[in-house]
Design a binder for these strands. Sequence first.
DNA 1: TCCAGTCTGTCCACTTGTGCACACAAGATT
DNA 2: AATCTTGTGTGCACAAGTGGACAGACTGGA
Lengths: 263, 263
Amino acid sequence: MAGLMMDARISKAAEVDSRPANNLLRRLSQADYALLAPHVTVDNAAANELLYNPGDDVQVVHFPCGPSLATFLVPNEDGRDVETILVGREGAVGGIVSEGYLPAYTRICVKFGGPFAHLNVAKLEAAKQRSPSLRHVFARYADCMLAQIFQSTACNAIHSIEQRTAKWILAAMERTGDENSVPLTHEQLATLLGVGRSYASRVLQSFRAEGVLETRRGSILVRNRDGLRLRACLCNDAVKMHFEEVLRGVYPTEEASPSSAQG
Amino acid sequence: MAGLMMDARISKAAEVDSRPANNLLRRLSQADYALLAPHVTVDNAAANELLYNPGDDVQVVHFPCGPSLATFLVPNEDGRDVETILVGREGAVGGIVSEGYLPAYTRICVKFGGPFAHLNVAKLEAAKQRSPSLRHVFARYADCMLAQIFQSTACNAIHSIEQRTAKWILAAMERTGDENSVPLTHEQLATLLGVGRSYASRVLQSFRAEGVLETRRGSILVRNRDGLRLRACLCNDAVKMHFEEVLRGVYPTEEASPSSAQG
DNA sequence: TCCAGTCTGTCCACTTGTGCACACAAGATT
DNA sequence: AATCTTGTGTGCACAAGTGGACAGACTGGA
């Protein structure tokens, strides 16, 4: 009997591990994932690749896997886009709320390159019709994404550039799983925060002076993660808590190694 | 035959007019509205009444009718809430994205008092299961609401307080239908923009000096709406265009009088 | 009619963030 | 090794927004 249980556990683990490294897909029951599996494809996307432009027909859901990251950009009258929220292996982009076939409102861009899983929106909707539990997982994720955007709106309204810089670096690291570096130029960081480049450099300098991080050409090395947390606003944590309440286990944590499970 | 047509038109108009003054509800087909009608109740809510607090079970969808306005607030570590988006007779609040039964993430508050229609989320979900067209209207609205939040996030990141003040006043007037006044103290305006009261007063003073508006104790009188538009960012217009594309006729326009229709 | 409470206009010193400029550094190319 | 391109550090003058203070002006209620 113990043998049987163990076999079941191993086969289930194997089944889950064969899925793309996306927590939303991995959280689905076997039966639910089986509805989607025939339509899921995986490939690599390069940084800066555009997944959607405003006005595009939304036909494919993209799931960032592993360290890849997507971002929602809102176009601006100046031509410079403003970055809003980051989506990594905890989620997906494209038709999550609209359920597809509406013109995209934002631009969606690959921030950090890597593997993405893809799924036709119509196939996903058909599967949702067949499985309420599948529908609920995606409705719950949609709610988490909404929470993320609400929090960003508030954050942009009242938190300082310094706080938002620290927050962004932490959020990116949580999602990529990289413990101490973020591949980003000062220019990119500035753009994504919607501030001038020189000020972004200055904020990073102040962090460096305090021993929190080091700067390299094209990347930021974090030396003291807790120091960074101390300097960040709490927006990330609020969103993380909502994820935990609504979709436990989907938001990536630092100790995400499989061996941490107690059985 | 003309008589028959006219009768049909009159009875249809009467049917629509008997619905609460909410554009989302009025946009539903007769058949779809019939699914909801037995469960819809209407009452009056006073300004500052709380519809949801963070963590609340989401069980009721609230539809602002006529001049009433609801707003999503994100709580902040300081205890002061930050206002994010405004919802008037073009929409609804509560379980639009989450489809109910999840803890609310934001606080939702009545900004301007007036009539609200209410509908149990579970009843709405049941009706959606029976009618794909009903589901689509709500999915489309959810997408518009999302667009609104995305735009606010970007707006807060890069637009000046002056632009955002003008934008907010215009957005509120569009929704209430009031052509030239907004019942708001400087304090309230400041809080909702996330800025200090004295600066909000100064911005209003500069508008007054330019003849754009007048200030009264507890309200703002708009004297030159185009002047205000000139001083606002274009965020409202972007959202409005998305509404027109996705849910034509739901976003309130200035010439909303029934007589403008050509038959 | 007067009082109390709230709202408004404005002053001031201060912090945060802007936008431009320019020297220098690190790779990439040849 | 010389060169080119792109990224980085920093100086400066300026604009935007903060937060506290306070006098005066409305308004509702006793």
